[in-house]
Amino acid sequence: MEKIRVSFNLNNEDVTIETFPNKRVVDMLREDFGCTSVKEGCGEGECGACTVIRNGEPVTSCTMLAGQVAGDRIVTLEGLSKNGELDILQKTFMEAGAVQCGFCTPGMILSAKALLMKNPHPTREEIRRALSGNLCRCTGYTKIIKAVEMAIEE
C-alpha cells in the first residue's frame, strides 16, 4: 500500500507525516505522535473517548481516516495546558471531583473546551448537550457538569 503524506497542525505545531491511508486519526495520534490521551472506547464514534478538537469543533477521531485531517488544526488534551499551566477546565475537573476512572476525561475536557470556546456562558442544558457525545460510566455526569460550570465562573 502506498503511503500518503499528511500535513496538519497538532497542538500548535505544524507536523507532516507519511502514513498508510487506512490508518484512523485515533491510531495516528496515539502511535505516531504519542498522544495517548486520545482513547479508544468503542471504535464507532459513540463513546467520545477519542474526541479531539478539529478546527475548533469536537470530532471523534475513531471515525476519521488520517488523510481527512490534512490542513486541519487538531488539539488533543496534550495541547491544552500551556507551558505547564493547566487549562481552567483541567483545574476545575480536579477540584470538582469530576474525574473517576479517567478514561473518558480527555474527551470530556475537550468537548467542554470546544463548548466554552464558542459559548463562554452556556446554560446547564447547553452543557449537557455539548457533553452528550461523551459517555461516562463512573460519575453520573453531575460533577463533570459542575466542573464546567465552575470554569465558566472563573
Binding site: E46, E57, V59, T60, S111, G133
Partner: peptide
C-alpha cells in the same frame, strides 16, 4: 442527530 462530534463531521 447523534452527538456534537457526529454533527460536526
Amino acid at each position: 442527530v447523534g452527538s456534537p462530534q457526529i454533527r460536526n463531521l
